[in-house]
Design a binder for these strands. Structure first.
Lengths: 367, 367
DNA sequence: ATGAAAGCGCTAACAA
DNA sequence: TTGTTAGCGCTTTCAT
């Protein structure tokens, strides 16, 4: 086959002393462009060009090219993304801020976002705000420092004041699950209004007239829309809306437990409970079990968030499923739309339909 | 109060033209050290020193100091961590590689790692390997490029070959859940051997003699130790070990479903099932429901991983709980031990005890 | 008490 | 076909 001149002096490797600091305990320094360049006696530009696939465009000789890429492989060379990012002003990184990764709903979203980002060759900086606004603010600052190119955020607060800066800086943002209806920030969320409406109607259709709500964090958009959907359904059927039937202020299990206990004691007329999260439902289950109430004979229950176990509970639970995977997917899409065409006005917001899954936790009763 | 001379010419702000590129659609460029320095007519060094809290040490005048920090605040200055990282060779970032964030067990670990890292003022680069070795390898490469200072990893493969490079490069690593017993890589995992042993003994103590195992991915350490624990318990009671009773090759729900279906058809003598993950158990539940087998009357079941819902299942499930929060905590600790004192030999590995939670899915039978 | 300058590793004009 | 150079934003000697 074609023989390649090998005697070329310029490509014979020079003896370059290895970097000194290789004593025990010292981290081995990364190979750099320069080291490769020196060893091969070519310029850094050449190496850079070859290694970033621009050999063709710059008509670099095959000889040089192979020599460079061989040595790079041999050295196990990895370009320093910090230097690269600094120079190019691109970090290929997005930030993901989640209130509680141990909540399967958010974990599902995070899972999808991580996968999507990867497909765009982006990395994900993860921050768990622990449902705490201060930690969220801190996380946002941190992500700015690190020059993320975009942000997927499930905000914990009821105000968007702390997002001002980021918007001003024109950082692409997508809100997930929770959003601010009066702001023009792009978001993706479940259609909580309709979901809650349908759930409530199911209850009403089964003869329930006195329905309690285990609500989540007040002021957050999912909660407010769910409350509204519930109220609208009642109103539509000319049923009275009793504000004292809407209880709680957290999406957590504890809240579900306590509020249910209280309800059981104070409102003997309640025939059904609508739990606004899977954790809330679990808490209700605990309280119900303690008080020896059977589902659905003594009391009916329906919950937001479908989870794999819902079908196998003592009483398979009727749920309003949220498409969390799709929410993650859409979030990624909306974000990269912005990143890739910053000049275009970002989409307003997207609402995904919920899905009412009927199981056996709702009983038909006669008024 | 104390009046501060304000007429000092040097600190009167100069009129510096704002950076040009502020047209619509252009990302506003970040404020830099230099901009602040120019405006105040001081040197970058001074600004740098003030902003990194070294004003005292360099005896910078209070006047300059306040002027600088005021302007910095006013400009909403954030130091560029890329530049900083490049200069200091510190990224303050760790990598987290998880096989499947939508699995609550891993999500719990991730949650804890994120929190722990934050406490050390480190950020977390998240990669979801999707239980896929190629994606894991890719993730590892990516994290190296980005110069993470450490790695928390739940490896998906059965070999550690792809970790060689990282170890060689002296990158601090901690393995979680899955590890390689014959390698000296630090790890934290549940004591799967004992956990499985105890679970099996419970079954045996209740008179079960023909116990099937729904196992996870073969070759992974959790699975192998669980199998071994199961076998040891049988042996200890002089019960025969029937290899055909150990079925499956994935920790997922599907596998639990299919293998249980098969078991039900082919091994009528099975009186108990030991599921090696919560997902596997869910799959088994589905199969059992389809085949109209009641738990524990027709068949007993016990599962690895305790989850909040376990107590509220149709039959509250007896489980071997893994301390996933602690696993995350310990992982963080082991990692930062290494990061902070690279010269010290890293700890070998840490096994955390499991916890047998007895509910009602195991029935006492008479042999 | 403050500044000048070098340099971290990389890329991209501009030269040749 | 390849090299020279400037510079991304920051920190840190070494001067003064």
């Amino acid at each position: 086959m074609k023989k390649i001149a090998v005697g070329n002096k310029r490509l014979r490797q020079k003896q370059v002393p290895p970097p000194a600091a290789s004593r025990r305990g010292q981290a081995k320094p990364h190979t750099t462009l320069k080291r490769i360049a020196d060893q091969l006696d070519v310029s850094m530009s050449t190496v850079s060009r070859v290694l970033s696939g621009q050999a063709r465009r710059h008509r670099i000789s095959t000889q040089t090219e192979t020599a460079v890429s061989n040595l790079a492989r041999q050295f196990n060379f990895v370009p320093n993304q910090l230097a690269r990012g600094l120079r190019l002003k691109k970090t290929l990184t997005i930030g993901l801020v989640i209130p509680d990764l141990s909540n399967p709903f958010f974990a599902g979203i995070a899972h999808q976002v991580a996968l999507g980002a990867r497909q765009h060759d982006y990395s994900v900086l993860l921050c768990d705000s622990h449902e705490n606004i201060d930690l969220e603010v801190q996380a946002l600052g941190l992500l700015r420092h690190r020059h993320v190119e975009g942000l997927v955020l499930c905000p914990v607060g009821t105000s968007a004041a702390h997002l001002e800066d980021l918007v001003q800086a024109q950082l692409p943002i997508v809100l997930v699950d929770r959003y601010f209806p009066d702001l023009s920030l792009p978001y993706v969320a479940a259609d909580n209004l309709t979901g809650a409406h349908e759930g409530t109607e199911l209850l009403i259709g089964n003869g329930h007239r006195c329905i309690a709500c285990l609500q989540g964090v007040r002021g957050t958009s999912p909660n407010e829309f769910r409350v509204r959907g519930y109220q609208q359904a009642l109103a539509r059927h000319r049923l009275p809306v009793d504000a004292s039937l809407i209880v709680g202020d957290s999406f957590g299990e504890q809240s579900g437990y306590i509020e249910t206990k209280l309800l059981l004691r104070n409102r003997k007329d309640v025939t059904a409970i609508f739990a606004f999260s899977n954790l809330l439902a679990l808490g209700a289950l605990r309280a119900l079990a303690e008080e020896h109430r059977r589902i659905p004979d003594d009391i009916s229950i329906i919950a937001f968030d479908d989870q794999p176990y819902a079908a196998y509970l003592a009483t398979p639970m009727t749920t309003v499923a949220q498409p969390f995977s799709e929410m993650g997917d859409v979030a990624v899409k909306l974000l990269f739309d912005q990143i890739q065409s910053p000049e275009r006005e970002p989409t307003g917001g997207i609402l995904l339909p919920t899905n009412l899954i009927i199981r056996r936790s709702v009983k038909k009763i006669t008024c």
